[in-house]
Amino acid sequence: MTEPHGTTPLNEQQEHEHHVVSPLIYLAILVCLLLATALTCGMSYIDLGEWHVAPGLTLFWNPVVALAIACTKMVLVVLFFMHVKYSPRLTKLTVASGLFMFLVLVGMTLADYFTRAWGRW
């Protein structure tokens, strides 16, 4: 971000050539996404058990796996369908900051809920 950002056309073209993604890649991504959908649907019928992390804190594996698959699908869509893999750094940064702020919202809010049960000092 610190380098001079001129608007002379020459600079711009060097910065990023518009990349055309081949339809074959799109097709491959489509297949992956459909397979992942089938996988996540199937997984929900299997009890994956749970992990007692600490007293009062239990982690169920089913939602973890479901969310992991959903995240993978999201990454595929973002990188290829939305061309982020071939986009300038600024776009990547924008996507990252969106996810980061979302995690801050979720994380900091849950930090309150999960520690309420710990009681007073």
């Binding site: 900091m108 930090a111 309150d112 999960f114 520690t115 309420r116 710990w118």
Partner: peptide, 21 residues
């Protein structure tokens, strides 16, 4: 700015630990 919002809620019954942070 995005990491401090709960200081509006200290007396509302949020977790003591969250208050501290």
């Amino acid at each position: 700015a995005f990491f401090v919002w709960a200081h509006h809620m200290f007396i509302m019954g949020i977790s003591n630990y969250a208050s501290l942070v």
